[in-house]
């Protein structure tokens, strides 16, 4: 790991100030992506600004069906929240499927969606729930936020504060984990709400998380696993690698969609 200078931010303003004062500084939340990347020398931030002790960034608030999750809330906290589970079990289930128990004790929702790994789980949930990502500068809708593999609408130095959404009538997430890494080879999040059906897919697409509009249309006419059969998922838009080729992933999208529907 290359040398770096560690700072602990006392507040969001403090973090923002430390970042802009640094040469090539980076925020560190749970460190479950950034530290492995630094150990592999694929990242070498001059400064690390630790936001993990900022209390205001932590916690889950459920008021009626409105849910707000602080950026520093860990995967274990999301998976274990009875309050969240009572209105939105799909997202709690999703968080419980991320990595392993030790990773879930440190990794955070903010870090996950800031990174936007094409095989990570949260992007599917956040996009499927039509969540709003609040930062220290503005609010961004999930539809505008995810811009492709490892790319988001965040500006340099912008800090995610929270993710909020209205819990839909029903939602579920089905994941086919890569047998070795356990990241999603394909993960499908389906939400049925007042504004219709949303289907978000992670792991499979060749440019990160995406909404499967053909599936959304078919399911809005017939909300059943059988409706998935008539839909064609374009293999040209799927990722192809050593773990699974594009045709295999295209098929997985339909299989996972059916499993999610069966769980709703």
């Amino acid at each position: 790991m290359h040398e770096t200078t560690y700072h602990r931010a006392a507040s969001v303003e403090d973090a923002s100030r430390l970042l802009s004062a640094s040469d090539e500084g980076q925020l560190i939340a749970g460190g479950q992506t950034l530290i492995p990347t630094m150990k592999a020398r694929l990242a070498a931030p001059s400064d690390l600004v630790d936001i993990s002790r900022i209390g205001a960034l932590r916690g889950i608030e459920v008021s009626g069906r409105r849910v707000t999750i602080g950026a520093m809330t860990t995967h274990a906290e999301v998976a274990g929240s009875a309050e969240l589970r009572s209105v939105c079990p799909g997202l709690a289930d999703l968080a419980g499927l991320i990595g392993d128990p030790a990773v879930r004790h440190r990794g955070t929702i903010g870090g996950s969606i800031a990174n936007n790994d094409p095989a990570s789980d949260y992007p599917a949930g956040v996009l499927g729930l039509a969540a709003v990502i609040r930062t220290d500068k503005r609010e961004i809708s999930a539809d505008d936020y995810f811009e492709g593999m490892f790319t988001t609408a965040l500006d340099e130095g912008e800090i995610i504060l929270s993710v909020s959404f209205d819990a839909p009538e029903a939602c579920a997430y089905a994941k086919f984990p890569n047998p070795a890494s356990r990241y999603a080879l394909c993960g499908v999040f389906i939400a049925k709400g007042a504004d219709g059906i949303r289907v978000a897919v992670t792991g499979a697409g060749n440019d990160g998380v995406f909404r499967a509009s053909a599936l959304e249309q078919a399911l809005s006419l017939d909300f059943s696993p059988a409706a998935v059969d008539g839909v064609t998922v374009d293999a040209d838009e799927m990722l192809s690698d050593i773990h699974g080729d594009a045709a295999y992933r295209a098929n997985l999208v339909k299989v996972m969609a059916k499993r999610a529907l069966a769980a709703m």
């Binding site: 560690y6 602990r8 560190i28 460190g31 479950q32 530290i35 492995p36 150990k39 690390l48 630790d50 993990s52 274990a76 128990p101 030790a102 990773v103 004790h105 440190r106």
Partner: peptide, 15 residues
């Protein structure tokens, strides 16, 4: 009190 990977955490963050 929580299991964590000590290879994926900075000593400074354990202050």
């Amino acid at each position: 009190g929580k299991a964590m990977k000590s290879c994926t955490m900075l000593a400074a963050a354990a202050d």
